[in-house]
Amino acid sequence: MSAITRDEVAHLARLSRLALHEDELDQLAAQLDEIISAVAKVQEVAQGDIPPTSHALPLTNVYRPDEDLPGLSPDQALAGAPAVEDQRFRVPQILGEDQ
C-alpha cells in the first residue's frame, strides 16, 4: 500500500500554496511515497513515554530592555516590494466579492 495518494499530494499542494503542474504532482506523489515510507522508521524507535525534544538546548524566554532603537525607514522597508502605492505594499485582492 502506498503511504500517500495523488489526491493527498494535490491537497498538500493547496495547503502549501504551490500551484503545481499535473506532471509535478505525479512525480511528487512517487517521491513523497518513497521518502515517507523511509522516514516512517521513527515510529519503530519512538515508543512509550519518551518526552519530545523540540529544541537542542534548554531555552527560556528572553526579554530585552524596552528601548527605542533605530529601525528601517519606510523607503528601506519598501525597497524590495513587488508593488508599492502611497508608501504601502500594494497587494492583489484579498477578499472575494461576497466577503
Binding site: I36, V45, I50
Partner: peptide, 21 residues
C-alpha cells in the same frame, strides 16, 4: 506540510521529536 497535518502529526513529527530525545 504532510508531517505537520492533523492526523499525521503524532505519527511523524511527534515521533521524530521523540527520536531527537
Amino acid at each position: 506540510t504532510y508531517a505537520l497535518s492533523s492526523g499525521y502529526y503524532d505519527a511523524y513529527y511527534g515521533s521524530a521529536q521523540q527520536v531527537r530525545t
